[in-house]
Structure formats: C-alpha cells, structure tokens
Amino acid sequence: MIVRDADRVLVQGITGKQGTYWTERMQAYGTRVVAGVNPKKAGTEHCGVPVCASAGEAMRETGFDVSVLFIPPLGVKAAARDAIEAGCGRLVILTEHVPVQDVMELLAMARANGAIVVGPNTAGLVTPGECFVGFMPAFESDVFRPGRVGVISRSGSLGALICLNLVQAGFGQSAFIGIGGDPIVGTTTRDALQELDADESTDAVVIVGEIGGTMEEDAAEYACTMSKPVVAFIAGRASPPGKKMGHAGAIVMGDKGTYASKRTALEAAGIEVLDTPSELGRALHAALG
C-alpha cells in the first residue's frame, strides 16, 4: 500500500470543496492525478484532469492504479464498488462515519476481486519526496521529509505529530501509512507492518496505535519475527473506559482494547512503547544502534 510517484491516481468526488482543495495539494506535491469522478459533471475538466461519469469510464479513458474517495459516508459503498469493478487494485477511503456493515460489504467485494483497501477513516498515504494520496500535510517540510523510517498510524493528526517529532529529531520517513480510525479497516496495523518490513527503503518502523480493538496486539505477534527495529506510541492511556474517544474504533469495553493490553503485548515483542511522542528521537537512535 506504499504509494509511488509512478502511481496514477483517480479522485472520486474530485469536484467537491475538499476534493478540489486536496487534489490541488496532491498535484502540487507531484502526485499523478489522472482523472476524477462525478457523474453530474462528466465530460468536463477539473483541476486540469478529465471528469468521468464512473471509475469504469476513467479506467477506459486514462487508466489508474489507485483511487482515493472524497465521498460522503452513505455513498462510499457504491463508489468503492464502482472502483473495484473497474479493476482498481488499491482504494484509499478517507471518509469517516461509513456504516460498518457497508464497510464489511465493500471489503468483501475488494477481497473477491483482489483489491486492497486502506481505510475507511484514514488520512491517507505519504511517500515523502514522491507523492501523497489523501489529506496529510506532506507539503509541510517540518512534518514530512524523505528518510528511512516507516510510520503506521490509525490517526491523521497524531500521525502528523509523530512525523513532526521524527523530523525534529533528524529523521525522515520512507512511507506514512494511515490505516484509519474505524473499528473495521481494510489494511490493519499488521498488514502495514509486513509491507514496511519488506520495503527496502525502510530501516525502522513507528507504530502509532490507540486504545480499542486488538490490532496492536496482532501486530506485536508479527513484530516478533522482524529484524528491523520497531517503536510504538499508543494513544488513550488517560482516557476514561466505556467512552468513544472521537474515533469509532477508540473505545475500551471491559478488559478488551485497553492501553495495558497493547503495551504489554508490544513490550513482550521487544518493542519500546513511548510515554510521549517527544521520546521518539531518543528511542529510534537507541533502537538503530
């Protein structure tokens, strides 16, 4: 799911306010946006690229490798189906509040067609110096800089803070993979960790997790098999149990999804879990020797 500058990107929902704002930002950064979708404005041009009636039409007209969805929650399932049926191999779903049963359906469609889904409720993907897809501040040079640390984050804002701390400590990123804050997402922490483990331009990985679910525990299992160093920060240590902390996925129920469970699992895998993101530089220098 790492994006590269050769990837051709389709923007579903390109003509909306946010679609437009972020398409311009992506283009300015070097992302190869090749087309957009809006059935009502098909045949026109927007942000300098053709607007198509569907992802299927875009596939025939320009072809594309990645589709990014700026689509309201209740339209996401249909838009994802459109992209998957068009033969899209990678979808980045930014939308928050997509009904979970819709998410399960679209993930099943993707599985059946061999497509990878990142999100929903992700801030997207960044490969500093190459391109970005979504709404991360790739263009802010104090946050993103080319380097050799891979970052996996459930949160966009916290992911950006972690990247800022990396740059402040003299590091840069090989790739940022936003996996999304929903309880069910297409790409898990473990999936992203496997990808960064296999990535030759990544020397170390930072896992940015949060309370709720068991993705960090699951990733810790895989981390045991890795030779690359991994450090982690888990948000939500001071959050009251039983409350949904902004992200639908961030809720502690009973003893499931707790901070303690995640920290214990990660530490058992030899991963240092930071008390504050500002310890990141020190921890990475130590981990990389």
Partner: peptide
C-alpha cells in the same frame, strides 16, 4: 482543545504523564 481524536487523546496522555490533569477531551 485539539484536532483529531488521536492527537487529542495523546494531549491528555502527555498532560497526565507529566503530572497534570486534563479538564476535558
């Protein structure tokens, strides 16, 4: 006052870690 769930939770965590007490999320 923060933006984003992850960052705001983290703000509370670090306040608590450094000995302070957040009044809200």
């Amino acid at each position: 006052l923060g933006n984003g769930a992850g960052l705001t939770m983290t703000t509370m965590d670090v306040i608590a870690h450094r000995g302070g007490r957040p009044a809200n999320f």
